[in-house]
Design a protein around this nucleic acid. Structure first.
Length: 828
RNA sequence: GCCGGAGUGGCGGAAUGGCAGACGCACGCGACUCAAAAUCGCGCGGAGUUAACUCUCCUUGGGGGUUCAAGUCCCCCCUCCGGCACCA
C-alpha cells in the first residue's frame, strides 16, 4: 500500500474494473425490492460542468445507498440529444449536427466515467437515435389516434432575416437571439397536443405527490391556473350578435359600464366595417398587433383602447353599454371579451379613468352601511351587493351563486371553468429533431405514417444554407413521398417535434432500452415504474415535469403503463454559484470540471459538492473547501495506512465485545451512534451532515490510535470503526473506499457490500450528563445513571452546593425536569 | 403586485421548543524539520471579569408576543434570492 493517497491512478483503475465486472448492471429481480433512481439526462452541449456534477453526484449517492440497502436499483443515463445548438454549430462550423452531437456525447460519456457514477451503461439511450425516435414518433401517432394531436393556425415568432420561426426562448427582448433583427409574428399551421384535456387531472393529482417539493407543485398549480366563473352572453344592439364574456366576478355584473373585445376578436370585423371611424380603428388594431405578445401581456404596458361606436345590452339589467377594443384583453383566454367593472377591478378602473367611462359601485365593504360613491380605487374584496336589483344586501360570495343560478335558469349564462394552461405547440421549423410522422396528400389530406413504416428517418447529410430555413425542405427525397392511403404523390411534414416531447417518456424507455418491436415491454415497464427518486434542476419545474406527467397519464389511460404519475419523489437541487453569482462565460467565473478532476480527482470533487451545502440550496463554490475535502480523504488514507497490517489480520470474527474498558465501550458507542445518524440523514438526503458525521468519527479515531495499540480488543474496535467509515463513505467517494476496502483484506468490491447494521447494544449509555438551569440559564451540570426519574433528578439537583448557592435567598417557584436531559429551577 | 424560499461567527454551514455556532474553511499557537511544505495536536462569536481554575453579561435581519425554556411557535416590519405577472 502506498503511504500517500494518489487518486489519479486509483480512480481510473477502479472505473475500469467496475465497468469490466459490470457491477452496476441491473435486471428485474424476483425477491429484492426494486428502486428506480433517475437524474435528468443532459443535453450534450459539449462538456459537463460542475452544475451537472452536483445533480449526478446527488443521484449517485441515492442510488448507491439504496443498492447497499438491498434494493435492486435501476440507475441509467442517456442523452437529450436533439436541439438547436447542434444546428447553430452546423451553421457556424460547417459540421453536421449529428456528428457534432455524437462527438459531444463521447466526450461527456467519458466525463461521466471519470466521475465514477454508478450507471448501467448498457441502457444508455440517445433521443436522436432512430431506435429511440422511432418510438417518439409512434407516441405521436397514438396521440393522433386518440384525438389529442391536432393541427391549427397559430401565431409564431418569426425572424424576417433568418426566415425562420423562433422559440420563445430564442427571442431576447423582442430581437432574434442570433442576428438581433426585430422579431415579428406570423400565422402558421402548427401541431398541438391537447394537454388542456388533462388540466384538471394534472392539477388534482398534484395533491397525491407527497414526495415533491411544495414549491414545484405551487408553480405547476399557478401555471395551470384554474379559475371558476360564468360565461354570460351580452347581445350586440344593432345586429343581435352574441358576445359571450367570461368572468369570475359575476356578483359585480350590475356594475358593468362597458364591454371590451380583444383586437383579434372575431366580431371586431363585423362591428367596424362600414362604421364612420373604421380607418381610425383599423390603425389602432394594427398598432396593437405589432407589439409582441410578451410585451403586450406585461402589466407595465399602458392600457390603450378605442370605442367602436357599438353598444351591447347587459343581460341582467338590460342596460346598454359601449363596446370598446383594448390591448389588455387577450384573445386566447376565456372568450376574448371582457366586461368592464371599473368599481371592482383595478385594470378596468385604470382604463375607465383614462377614457372617462363611468364607475358604478355595486359591492359595498361589509363594515360600511352606505355605498361610497366617490372612489379613487377599485374595491376588489368581497362585500355586500348593492345597486343590483333583486340581489341587494346579499354578501358577494352568496351573491355569486345566486347570480349564476339566475343566469342559468334564464338561459343567459352558465358556470364555466377556465385555465391559463394552453395546448402544447410541438411543431418546430427545425432540422435537428424527430420528424413529425405525417404525410400531406392532395386527395386524402393529413395522413399519419403507418406504424410499420416508422421511423421516418432524418437525413444525416444535410446542407445548411444561410437562409436559416430547415434543410429538410431542400431534400426532395425526404419531402416527396407517396400517400400511405391512396398511393398517390404526397409531401412529408418537414417540421420536427419539440425536444420536450423526446424527454417526456425517456424514463419509460430506460426500462426496456433495446426493445425494438414496441416502445417497451409492459411487464418490465410496470415492474420499474414509477421512478422512485427523480433528481434535477428546478428550471424544469413546469415544462418538462408537466409534459412528462401528461404523457404518463395518457399512456396509463390507453393501458400502456399502469402508473398514473411518473415520479414518486422529486429532488430539485440548487444552483452552483461562484462569487455569489451563477457561473457564466460573460462573468468569467466558471469552474472547470476537467481541472478539478485533474487536480483533485472525482472523489474529492464529489465529496466537496455534497458537503458544502444541503442539496436543495444553492452552493457557493470554494477552492479552499475543495482542499478541505481532499485533506479529509488523505486523513482516512493515512489512518488505514497506519493500521493496515493489523486491520487486514483482525477480521470481524475475532472481535471481542465483552470485557471492554470504558474507553473502548465509548468508541464503539460512537461508531454506532454515527452509523445511526448517517443512516437517518441519508434517508432524508441531508448529505452535508452525513459527511460532517463521518468526519467527527474519523477525528475521534485519531484520538483513539494510541488506545488501539494497547491490546487486541481495542484494535478490533479500530477495525470495526474503519470498516464502518469506509462503508458509510462508499456512496460519496466510491474509488478511495473500494481501494482501501481491498487494502484491508476484502476481495469483493465495497459497492457490493451491504449497508452496516446499527448494534443497538453498543448504543446503551450508562452515564448521562444532565444540564442544570436556573431561570432558563445553564448554571451547572451533573452526571447520573441513564433513566433516572424526575423525582430523583429533582432531589439530586437541589442538593448540590452550586445550586444551593445560586438559589440561596430566593424562593423556588417551580422545578421542571426533563429526564435524561435537563432540570430547570425557576425562582421568584 | 402576487406566490414561494432564505437571513445564524471572518466564510460555507449545524441544531425532534431543552447546552446556539456541530463539521469544514480561514486564522493563531505548539510539535516534527536545518528550514519550509505536508502532517499531528491545541485554540478560535463578542464584551467584561479573575493571579488562576473561573465567573458574568450580550449574541441567530429588526420590533413585539406565547412559554419554565424560542434560531425553532405566533403577529408586524426590513433585506436578499427564485417563480408568476393585464388570465377578466
Amino acid at each position: 500500500m502506498k503511504n500517500k493517497y494518489d487518486f489519479g491512478e486509483l480512480e481510473s483503475k477502479w472505473q475500469t474494473a467496475w465497468e469490466e465486472e459490470g457491477i452496476y448492471h441491473v435486471n428485474p429481480h424476483e425477491t429484492k425490492p426494486k428502486y428506480y433512481a433517475l437524474e435528468m439526462f443532459p443535453y450534450p452541449s459539449g462538456r459537463l460542468h460542475v452544475g451537472h456534477t452536483r445533480n449526478y453526484a446527488i443521484g449517485d449517492v441515492i442510488a448507491r445507498f439504496r443498492r447497499m440497502n438491498g434494493f435492486c436499483v435501476l440507475h441509467p443515463m442517456g442523452w437529450d440529444a436533439f436541439g438547436l445548438p447542434a444546428e447553430n454549430a452546423a451553421i457556424e462550423r460547417g459540421i453536421q449536427p449529428s456528428q457534432w452531437t455524437s462527438g459531444n456525447i463521447q466526450h461527456m460519456r467519458s466525463q461521466f466515467m471519470r466521475l465514477g457514477l454508478s450507471y448501467d451503461w448498457r441502457r444508455e439511450v440517445a433521443s436522436c437515435h432512430p431506435g429511440y425516435y422511432k418510438w417518439t414518433q409512434w407516441l405521436f401517432l397514438q396521440l393522433l389516434k386518440h384525438g389529442l394531436a391536432y393541427r391549427k393556425k397559430a401565431q409564431v415568432n418569426w425572424c424576417p432575416k433568418c426566415q425562420t420561426v423562433l422559440a420563445n426562448e430564442q427571442v431576447v427582448e423582442g430581437l432574434c437571439e442570433r442576428c438581433d433583427t426585430e422579431v415579428t409574428k406570423k400565422e402558421l399551421e402548427q401541431w398541438f397536443f391537447k394537454i388542456t384535456d388533462y388540466a384538471d387531472r394534472l392539477l388534482e393529482n398534484l395533491e397525491t405527490l407527497e414526495g415533491w417539493p411544495e414549491k414545484v407543485k405551487i408553480m405547476q398549480k399557478n401555471w395551470i391556473g384554474r379559475s371558476e366563473g360564468v360565461e354570460v352572453v351580452f347581445k350586440l344592439k344593432d345586429t343581435g350578435d352574441d358576445i359571450p364574456v367570461f368572468t369570475t366576478r359575476h356578483d359585480t355584473i350590475f356594475g358593468v359600464t362597458y364591454l371590451v373585445l380583444a383586437p383579434e376578436h372575431p366580431l371586431v370585423e363585423k362591428i367596424i366595417s362600414g362604421s364612420p371611424r373604421e380607418q381610425e380603428i383599423r390603425k389602432f388594431i394594427a398598432g396593437v398587433s405589432r407589439v409582441s405578445e410578451i410585451d403586450r401581456t406585461s402589466e407595465l404596458t399602458e392600457k390603450i383602447g378605442i370605442a367602436t361606436g357599438a353598444y351591447a345590452a347587459n343581460p341582467m339589467s338590460g342596460q346598454e353599454v359601449p363596446v370598446w377594443i383594448a390591448n389588455y384583453v387577450l384573445p386566447h383566454y376565456g372568450t376574448g371579451a371582457v366586461m368592464g367593472v371599473p368599481a371592482h377591478d383595478m385594470r378596468d378602473f385604470e382604463f375607465a379613468k383614462k377614457y372617462g367611462l363611468p364607475v358604478k359601485v355595486v359591492i359595498v365593504p361589509p363594515d360600511q352601511a352606505h355605498c361610497q360613491c366617490e372612489t379613487n380605487e377599485a374595491y376588489e374584496e368581497p362585500g355586500v351587493m348593492a345597486n343590483s336589483p333583486g340581489f341587494d344586501g346579499m354578501p358577494s360570495d352568496k351573491g355569486k351563486n345566486a347570480v349564476a343560478e339566475f343566469m342559468e335558469s334564464h338561459g343567459i349564462g352558465k358556470r364555466t371553468v377556465n385555465y391559463k394552461l394552453r395546448d402544447w405547440l410541438i411543431s418546430r421549423q427545425r432540422y435537428w429533431g424527430a420528424p413529425i410522422p405525417i404525410v400531406y396528400c392532395d386527395s386524402c389530406g393529413i395522413v399519419g405514417v403507418p406504424e410499420e413504416d416508422l421511423p421516418v428517418e432524418l437525413p444525416l447529410d444535410v446542407e445548411f444554407r444561410p437562409t436559416g430555413q430547415s434543410p429538410l425542405n431542400d431534400i426532395p427525397e425526404f419531402v416527396n413521398t407517396t400517400c400511405p392511403k391512396c398511393g398517390g404523390p404526397a409531401r412529408r411534414e418537414t417540421d420536427t417535434m419539440d425536444t420536450f416531447m423526446c424527454s417526456s417518456w425517456y424514463f419509460i424507455r430506460f426500462t426496456c432500452p433495446r426493445t425494438d418491436d414496441r416502445p417497451w415491454d409492459p411487464d418490465t415497464a410496470n415492474y420499474w415504474l414509477p421512478v422512485d427518486q427523480y433528481t434535477g434542476g428546478v428550471e424544469h419545474a413546469i415544462l418538462h415535469l408537466m409534459y412528462s406527467r401528461f404523457f404518463t397519464m395518457f399512456l396509463s389511460d390507453i393501458g400502456l403503463i399502469k402508473t398514473k404519475e411518473p415520479f414518486a419523489r422529486l429532488l430539485t437541487q440548487g444552483m452552483v454559484l461562484k462569487d455569489g453569482a451563477k457561473m457564466s462565460k460573460s462573468k468569467g467565473n466558471i469552474v472547470s470540471l476537467e481541472e478539478m478532476l485533474d487536480k483533485y480527482g472525482a472523489d474529492t470533487t464529489r465529496l466537496f459538492i455534497l458537503f458544502a451545502s444541503p442539496p436543495e440550496r444553492d452552493l457557493e463554490w470554494s477552492d479552499q473547501g475543495v482542499e478541505g475535502a481532499s485533506r479529509f480523504l488523505g486523513r482516512i488514507w493515512r489512518l488505514v495506512y497506519e493500521f493496515q497490517n493489523e486491520l487486514a489480520s483482525y477480521d470481524s470474527a475475532q472481535r471481542e465485545r465483552s470485557g471492554l474498558t470504558s474507553e473502548e465501550k465509548e468508541m464503539r458507542r460512537r461508531i454506532h451512534a454515527t452509523l445511526q445518524k448517517v443512516t437517518q440523514d441519508l434517508e432524508r438526503y441531508s448529505f452535508n451532515t452525513v459527511v460532517a458525521g463521518i468526519m467527527e468519527l474519523v477525528n475521534a479515531l485519531y484520538q483513539f490510535r494510541d488506545v488501539a495499540r494497547t491490546r487486541r480488543e481495542a484494535m478490533g474496535i479500530m477495525g470495526e470503526a474503519v470498516r464502518t467509515v469506509l462503508l458509510m463513505l462508499a456512496p460519496f467517494a466510491p474509488h478511495i473506499t473500494d481501494e482501501l476496502w481491498h487494502e484491508i483484506g476484502y476481495k469483493r468490491s465495497i459497492h457490493e457490500e451491504n449497508w452496516p447494521a446499527v448494534d443497538e447494544s453498543a448504543l446503551v449509555e450508562t452515564q448521562i450528563e444532565i444540564v442544570i438551569q436556573v431561570n432558563g440559564r445553564v448554571r451547572d451540570r451533573m452526571h447520573v445513571a441513564k433513566g433516572r426519574d424526575s423525582e430523583y433528578l429533582r432531589r439530586e439537583v437541589l442538593a448540590r452546593d452550586r445550586v444551593k448557592e445560586l438559589v440561596e435567598d430566593k424562593d423556588i417557584r417551580e422545578v421542571f425536569v426533563v429526564p435524561d436531559r435537563l432540570v430547570n429551577i425557576v425562582t421568584s
